[in-house]
Amino acid sequence: MERSGLITFQGNPLTLVGNSVKLGEKAPDFTVLANDLSPRTLDSYKGKVLIISSVPSLDTSVCDTATRQFNKDAACLSDDIKILTISVDLPFAQARWCGAAGIDKVVTLSDHKDLSFGTNYGMAIKELRLLARGVFVVDRNQKLVYTELVNEVTDQVNFNAALEAAKKALA
């Protein structure tokens, strides 16, 4: 399914591929790659509250800033909350970027192989084969309790709203 008119990149309209997800629904499964090339799915984090940050590429200033901010925020969160940053960057590039940026609390995952996350969450950008910027919070029962799709890809997500939703999901 293709959806138009939801996001832009520097003011230019783009097309999202996949179904949109809705609050209260079960979070769709996905298969992505960890930095060591091992597969990760939604069930890999079963029993945890997840903040899933979808970004186009860690090698851009907005994505870099967002991931650094989530890494900083993660230091103050319960161990029962995991922050995942998913992009289509190659796992090797993600590992190199994390090392250079000192990222040690956020888990970076790659959707480059199948765009499984991107299409299952409606975040795959047809024209660029990148992911749209957004954030999802999934509770311990794998239910979506917060979603945000950023309309302009170069803008940031609402960090505070995502963090508050994750903390509330712990209760």
Score class of each variant (00 low, 15 high):
83 I>Y: 01
171 A>C: 15
93 A>D: 08
63 C>S: 15
60 T>G: 04
43 D>Q: 15
40 R>K: 15
159 F>Q: 05
68 R>Q: 12
92 F>E: 08
121 Y>K: 08
7 I>H: 02
154 T>S: 08
143 K>S: 09
115 L>P: 01
28 P>H: 11
60 T>C: 14
141 N>E: 14
165 A>R: 13
19 N>P: 00
86 I>V: 11
97 W>M: 00
70 F>D: 04
169 A>R: 04
119 T>D: 03
159 F>V: 09
163 L>V: 13
106 V>E: 00
79 D>E: 12
80 D>K: 11
136 F>Y: 02
148 E>I: 09
23 L>G: 10
65 T>P: 00
138 V>L: 10
133 R>S: 03
44 S>L: 12
17 V>C: 05
98 C>T: 05
39 P>V: 10
92 F>Q: 08
67 T>R: 01
64 D>E: 11
31 T>H: 06
158 N>R: 04
142 Q>E: 14
134 G>F: 02
5 G>W: 02
123 M>Q: 02
98 C>V: 09
147 T>I: 13
120 N>L: 05
154 T>E: 13
124 A>E: 01
120 N>H: 10
17 V>S: 05
168 K>C: 03
158 N>G: 14
72 K>P: 09
47 G>V: 11
19 N>W: 06
87 S>W: 03
133 R>F: 04
27 A>H: 09
13 P>A: 09
30 F>E: 01
98 C>P: 00
122 G>I: 00
13 P>G: 12
80 D>Q: 14
109 L>P: 01
58 L>M: 09
13 P>F: 01
46 K>Y: 04
148 E>K: 15
129 R>G: 02
76 C>V: 08
33 L>I: 15
10 Q>D: 11
36 D>Y: 06
113 K>G: 00
22 K>H: 02
2 E>T: 02
76 C>T: 15
149 L>C: 13
165 A>D: 05
16 L>R: 00
80 D>G: 03
102 G>R: 04
150 V>P: 00
154 T>H: 13
16 L>D: 09
1 M>F: 12
122 G>L: 05
92 F>C: 00
58 L>F: 11
76 C>S: 13
170 L>Q: 11
30 F>L: 12
81 I>N: 07
146 Y>Q: 09
43 D>A: 14
13 P>Y: 10
